[in-house]
């Protein structure tokens, strides 16, 4: 039984291929011009590294922002369900998933079976998402991948009071103009994003055993500041936190194969 999950987000596309025994391959790419071409490319890459062909996949489930358009997916599930099940599959003790993606941010509560108990999300405003980090990293001329490394070097983040990313950009520029240390600014940026996420998490009663997923979870600066603002510690997942959505989708596909669902 070979099942696959394909997660097409706003900034990256992810694919995950698994059997009932365990994982076979996974892949992450930057999105292409259309959702369909991103999905095709990421799945082809994952299939190539698992030495499989499209016809070997028994069921594929899609998720993410572009989930309705994927031609080879037999089913689709919402990102919220997939992140919940994916995190639960990776570590069954997880009860709260904080997913910080490119264009939204969600806090998902799961029960002991891995199904969704409650969730809250912000997809109205870019503050507290990967987009905000990307804009601000560009403003200070630091690569997105290096922003986190730079941020953890600082213990004194600059205080960014604005909530809107564009106003934040202006505030960051002001700090740059007055010659503040770059690492303190980088840490301030991470702190500003973390504050927004912590604010969202406060609106829902979270349980311990928290994990962070999504692209922003790879930024150690944001993770550290988030732990500080929420006054909680996070569990480190045994798999790449960015792939969790695709992993969850693959789990749903696997369930569908077992129950003889869509095929």
């Amino acid at each position: 039984m070979i099942a696959a999950g394909c997660d097409v987000g706003s900034l990256t596309a992810k694919a995950y291929i698994m059997t009932e025994k365990g994982p076979l391959a996974s892949e992450i790419i930057r999105v292409k011009s259309t959702n369909i071409s991103s999905a095709n490319e990421v799945m082809e890459k994952a299939l190539a590294s698992a030495r499989l062909r499209f016809s070997d996949l028994e069921c594929c489930c899609s998720t993410g922002y572009g989930r309705h358009e994927i031609p080879f997916a037999k089913m689709n599930m919402s990102e919220i369900s997939c992140h919940g099940l994916g995190a639960f599959h990776a570590d069954p003790s997880i009860r709260t998933v904080i997913d910080i993606g490119g264009q939204d941010c969600k806090v998902i509560l799961i029960d002991s079976n891995g199904s969704i108990r409650d969730f809250i999300m912000n997809d109205k405003c870019a503050a507290g998402t990967g987009r905000s980090l990307e804009i601000l990293a560009r403003t200070i001329g630091v690569k997105l991948e290096e922003l986190g490394k730079l941020a953890v070097k600082s213990k004194k983040p600059i205080n960014i009071t604005n909530k809107c990313s564009i106003f934040m950009e202006l505030e960051v520029l002001n700090h740059l103009y007055t010659r503040k240390r770059l690492k303190h600014i980088a840490c301030g940026i991470a702190d500003a994003v973390a504050k927004r996420v912590a604010g969202l998490a406060k609106a829902i009663d979270i349980e311990d055993n928290i994990c962070i997923t999504g692209g922003v979870s790879k930024n150690p600066g944001v993770v550290r500041q988030l732990a500080h603002h929420m006054n909680k510690s996070f569990k480190v997942l045994p798999v790449d936190p960015q792939i969790i959505g695709a992993l969850g989708a693959a789990c749903y596909a696997m369930q569908a194969i077992k129950t003889g669902g869509p095929s």
Partner: peptide, 10 residues
């Protein structure tokens, strides 16, 4: 659909 100036671009 979204008022956010950042999301408006995409």
């Amino acid at each position: 659909t979204s008022n956010c100036a950042v999301f408006a671009e995409s």
